[in-house]
């Protein structure tokens, strides 16, 4: 089950906590994985740990970078079967204190790059009549979160976008889904204060934070042939923090 032997995958934001776990998990299932991120040294270090992986340095906030990354991945791998759009940033702050640039940056990196990558990847997937788009959204895109209006907008945007894409290409063997992780142990949640963590923990019926590997397992499933009939969905994986 969930065998990905020979499948060609691209994972963005691969140097992050979730991204590296997803890249490793896809590779463990047999996929050839291109990993992208902004930090070259960390990326090369990660590539050394993952067999058959290709490091591609890319800063998705740059003009044409997202589209270019797809082309580079297709060239390096000889095609693309699986796109895991995991790269994302936060610029938290209350709306009344939020700078225009904080909103723009988050939308650009989290949502616009997702659009540009999906568009670029669609050509090849349409031709081969198969493909897997997996957008890493967030529980915040579903429920909202004070101090994260920009981040929530970007993640909710990913979810709506994914549903539309899923409808457009379902007849061509291509699925598009989002994973909406809750509170996961990662560098992104590491920066929270103990008080913030405790407050969040109180809302999680499972009584613990999620592990990156638990998200990665879901990504492997969605990437697999077995998940061909699931499309346009947002899978919430959050220890019961929000039951939707």
């Amino acid at each position: 089950m969930f065998d990905l032997t020979g499948k060609k995958a691209l994972v963005t934001g691969a140097t992050g906590g979730l991204g590296s776990a997803i890249a490793k998990a896809l590779a463990a299932q047999g996929a050839i994985v291109a990993i992208s991120g902004t930090r070259e040294a960390v990326l090369n270090e990660l590539a050394a740990q993952i067999p058959n992986s290709v490091p591609l340095v890319a800063n998705l906030s740059g003009e044409g970078e997202a589209e270019g990354l797809i082309k580079r991945a297709e060239e390096a791998l000889g095609g693309l079967d699986i796109l895991v759009a995991n790269a994302g940033v936060t610029r938290d702050g209350l709306l009344m204190r939020m700078k225009d640039s904080d909103f723009d940056d988050v939308l650009k990196i989290n949502l616009y790059s997702y659009f540009a990558m999906c568009k670029a990847a669609m050509r090849g997937m349409m031709k081969q009549k198969s493909g897997r788009i997996i957008g890493i959204a967030s529980i915040v895109g579903v429920t909202g979160n004070a101090g994260q209006a920009n981040y929530a907008a970007s993640k909710a945007g990913m979810i709506g976008f994914t549903k539309s894409v899923a409808q457009e290409v379902a007849s061509r063997g291509i699925t598009a889904n989002c994973i909406a992780p809750g509170f996961i142990v990662s560098p992104m949640t590491e920066i929270l204060t103990d008080a913030q963590k405790a407050a969040t923990m109180a809302q999680i019926p499972a009584g613990r934070m999620g592990e990156a590997d638990e998200i990665a397992a879901l990504a492997c499933y969605l990437a697999s042939d077995e998940a061909a009939y699931i499309t346009g969905q947002t899978i919430n994986i959050n220890g019961g923090m929000a039951m939707i």
Binding site: M126, K127, V169, S171
Partner: peptide, 9 residues
């Protein structure tokens, strides 16, 4: 409409 996109490709 998707067929026409494929045709152009």
């Amino acid at each position: 409409s998707l067929d026409t996109v494929e045709l152009v490709m």
